[in-house]
Design a protein around this nucleic acid. Structure first.
Lengths: 340, 340
DNA sequence: TGAAAGTGAACAATCGGTTGCGTTGCCGCG
DNA sequence: CGCGGCAACGCAACCGATTGTTCACTTTCA
């Protein structure tokens, strides 16, 4: 049981061959006879040898680590996203022989990221949230470390993997308008997040495609609504304006909106309809079931990791990848058209 | 700007000294003249040299990484815990010159952890959730890797840092009983989690201390309640039994309970009182404000990391550390005694 | 039969540091 | 003057791998 840390040298000695031979047998690179290779591999197997990755790294100038940047200050409705995304990253990294090194970034403080990079502890980086004018992005660009962003960035040069928020929001909005709704509102969304802009565009596109104001559609946008209080105010205003449907940028906010409506005894979907993004467990225990858009975040993370690995291996990688979504129409928005 | 990866050799050459000298100047170990050291340090400073940690690691047989094990399948109400805990860990690790390598464990699959350990990519490990009969714990014990658990384990040998769940639950229960309540229930909590047992004990102790059944107290315990459906059933039963107060093991569950009560038009706290654990943002948008117990999870992670670092440095460390809690009495449980 | 071609494996340098031990130069002191 | 002692620093081995080059030995073919 106690395989007290064999080294490649020990094995070479035991088998009366050179370290070179052992190394070649294991890596499969370089010429080596079939019989010798079997002998080495058998020995390795029998003694549970596994090479010291740090030493390998030194020799190959690699670390076999990828850095993942996580916001340290995300709110509750984002957590399931990061969790799943992380899972996707870890899984694909792991099966490619890489490990994941995490650095948390809070606000503008990217010191953990800097450390990891200047200490050469990572071969590449994945960003899980990007702001407009992102400090991490700037830093990574100027240090020329390979990286890919989950979610969109302003900068077209940056490799990115994202869900099609714009398309998703467009489709959702369109399906709501298709029900005959005319006074529709989009609320929430941090202005600093790039994703907010994407959705906003999708929303506006859908409205425009249906004729916009000319067709009697009133589209109301209120960004930066993020807590009970601001939600309360927004709802009050929207109700006064006889809004027929509220699309919330995230599930937490949606919970707030549902509360506010409930407090005013406004029936959902009877008097007003509600839809949300993410379809997370945050709303799992709410009634009525909320119309929402689901993204496969594990896949998102996985794909991002995959792309990064391509770059690290010098293989071609796509500048930009857009993943799909599923619109789940449910009772909160008059779910007759449920797609499931 | 382009400090194209200086090595210690480059510096030695530039300064006409040996690598040894540079190394000594930077580490402060070994004899070296004050003037020489200044010269080296100035040069290092001017050229933004920072040593290659991988190489250092090879030489010192260290990695300067600590592994953190996260469950990949946690439910929504646990996420804020892991997030904060992680933040605490990252911060203290970072300021000690360590990085954090994460491995996600889902169910019994500890392959990511194994990889990190057998590849010698980590100097020690932190477990953020422990089950009874935990596979990770078993593995780490037999490989003799230093590790500490956040949260309690069965095994007294394991280093652990935990919040005082038992004490917290005891105090909460006691304060509820002090209000004159006699029919009280504890629901939720995964039987496989050690923490569930701790709280249960606290609950029972408080009941016993007030006289228990002899004093007319009826204490009702229902474990493994975790979703809308099971919560619904539990609530129905408890209501039928005229329970006066329900203590929920986590905030998500508490949300379910509030829903169930609301659906039956049972007023909180008027007809029944409710309390919960964690005081997380999961309930932030709910009314009435819920009595809850708050733990400082960032501190928890930080302390755990601190302990691990002590072990890694061969310094003495405590076998077990218990951190405090704050009981926040609020409206949901007749919050007159609010302690803030 | 002899030279070119091909094969399997070892040598030794290298990656970027650390560290035990040895060397050098200077000082003080008998 | 000579010697011991010490401070300052260099040498070279080492950590555990990878890899370009060399070498011995077979095969192949003219």
């Amino acid at each position: 049981m106690e395989e007290k840390n064999l080294t490649i040298g020990d094995i070479a000695q035991a088998l009366h061959v050179s370290k070179t031979t052992v190394s070649r047998a294991m890596s499969g690179k370089g010429r080596i006879g079939e019989e010798t290779r079997r002998r080495v591999l058998d020995y390795v197997e029998a003694h549970h040898y596994s090479p010291n990755v740090v030493a390998q790294g030194l020799a190959q100038n690699k670390t076999f680590n990828i850095g993942v940047v996580m916001p340290g200050d995300s709110n509750i409705s984002e957590l399931p996203f990061f969790q799943s995304c992380m899972l996707g990253i870890c899984r694909t990294a792991s099966s490619a022989g890489y490990d994941v090194l995490i650095s948390m970034v809070t606000g503008e403080d990217i010191s953990q990221l800097r450390r990891a990079v200047t200490n050469r502890k990572v071969d590449g980086v994945i960003l899980t949230r990007t702001l407009t004018e992102d400090a991490s992005v700037r830093y990574l660009m100027e240090t020329e470390v390979p990286f890919v962003a989950v979610g969109s960035t302003d900068d077209g040069e940056v490799m990115q993997v994202d869900s099609d928020h714009r398309g998703a929001c467009r489709e959702l909005t369109d399906r709501l308008l298709a029900q005959g709704l005319r006074k529709i509102a989009l609320i929430g969304g941090d202005e600093r997040f790039v994703v907010t802009g994407s959705r906003l565009r999708g929303f506006q596109e859908a409205v425009a495609a249906r004729g916009g104001a000319d067709a009697g559609i009133r589209a109301d946008v209120t960004l930066n609504v993020r807590d009970m209080e601001t939600a309360e105010r927004a709802v009050e205003r929207l109700v006064r304006r006889e809004t027929e449907c509220i699309v919330c940028m995230d599930d937490f906010l949606c919970g707030c909106v549902l509360n506010a409506l409930q407090a005013r005894r406004i029936a959902v979907p009877g008097q007003i309809r509600v839809a949300s993004f993410y379809d997370s467990t945050v709303l799992e225990n709410r009634l009525p079931p909320v119309t929402s858009i689901r993204f496969d975040m594990e896949e998102l993370g996985g794909k991002a990791c995959e792309q990064l690995l391509h770059v690290l291996n010098g293989e071609p990688a796509k500048r930009r990848i857009l993943l799909g979504y599923e619109v789940h129409m449910r009772e909160s928005a008059g779910g007759c058209l449920d797609k499931v």
